[in-house]
Amino acid sequence: MTTATAVEKREGKVRPEPTRGGRIYSPNVDILENREELLLLADVPGARPEDINIQYENGELTIHARVDSRTEVGEAQFLACEYGVGDFHRSFQLGESIDNSKIHAKVKDGVLTVHLPKTEAVKPRKIAVKTA
């Protein structure tokens, strides 16, 4: 039973203006739904909690996590650099069914969890049938 929608915001003119150098990465996400809420999980390894910025406006959820780019460790030389290091950014259009005053988020072990509770109006309700 789904009452909410989650659609990736198209890239294009709304692309954020980078205010500093470095690449911007799109984090891998899971978006799950149950009766009460949408749950978003995003992999943001290396991001500190204070550097994660979540905004919800007009049904659009934007996640931005600032990650300092790869720093040279003293005199160490890199022999392999297989993953990219940089900011994470991604937006989703979530529709009108989210109660924006109750959104809360936490980050643990590089995984950002955003709880997006649904408004009472769209929660499925069971109606008791009484006998006359």
């Binding site: 999980l41 390894p45 003293g74 005199e75 160490a76 890199f78 022999l79 392999a80 993953y83």
Partner: peptide
């Protein structure tokens, strides 16, 4: 995926393993 760096005294390996 990992990073592998070498300095005079040590080898440092970093791996992204969220969650």
């Amino acid at each position: 995926r990992l990073d592998l760096a070498e300095s005079d005294n040590e080898v440092i390996v970093k791996v992204e393993l969220p969650g």
